[in-house]
Amino acid sequence: MTTQLRGVLAPVLTPFKPSLEPDSERFVAHCRWLLENSAALAIFGTNSEAASISVPERIALTDALLEAGIPASKLMPGTGACSLVDAVALTRHAVANSAAGVLMLPPFFFKGVSDDGLFAYYSEVIERVGDERLAVYLYHIPQMSYAPITLGLIERLLKRYPTVVAGAKDSSGDWNNSKAMIETFAGGGFDVFPASEAFLSKALPIGGAGCISATVNMNPSGIHALYQAWNGPDGQSLQARADTIRKIFQAVPMIPAMKQVVSVFSTAPSWRIVRPPLTGLSDDAANGVLHQLQAAGFEMPGYPAC
Rank of each mutant, 00 (worst) to 15 (best):
T79D: 04
A214Y: 04
D23A: 14
Y122H: 06
D116M: 09
A72K: 09
A225D: 10
S171E: 01
K111S: 11
A180I: 01
K202T: 01
D131E: 09
A29K: 11
E155R: 05
K169T: 01
Y137K: 01
I154D: 02
E67Y: 04
V164P: 06
V261C: 01
F16E: 01
K247N: 13
G189H: 10
I59F: 02
L226T: 10
R133S: 05
V113Y: 11
E25D: 13
I255R: 01
P233L: 06
E299S: 09
T62A: 08
D174W: 00
K74A: 10
P276I: 03
T79P: 03
I248P: 13
S196V: 06
V129F: 15
D243I: 08
R32V: 02
D131G: 13
S114I: 11
A89F: 06
L138H: 02
V125A: 09
L90I: 10
L226K: 06
Y137C: 05
F298N: 12
R32Q: 03
I126G: 06
G130N: 13
V192Y: 05
M76K: 05
I182W: 00
D170E: 05
D63H: 14
H291T: 11
T163Q: 11
A268N: 09
R156N: 04
S237Q: 15
F16C: 12
Q239I: 12
D234R: 07
A135Q: 15
L238N: 04
F298W: 11
F109L: 14
D234K: 06
N287R: 11
M258C: 10
L238G: 06
H93R: 03
I154F: 12
E67A: 15
A100C: 03
G7T: 12
L61P: 14
D63Q: 15
L158Y: 09
N287W: 04
H93Y: 14
V12R: 05
D284T: 12
W33P: 14
K247W: 10
P220T: 13
A229H: 12
R128A: 11
A94W: 03
A72L: 05
A305R: 14
L34H: 08
E67V: 09
T14V: 14
L290G: 07
L75N: 08
N97F: 08
G167L: 03
S213D: 03
D191P: 03
V102N: 08
A81I: 05
D234V: 02
A50K: 02
T184E: 00
T79M: 07
P269G: 09
S123N: 08
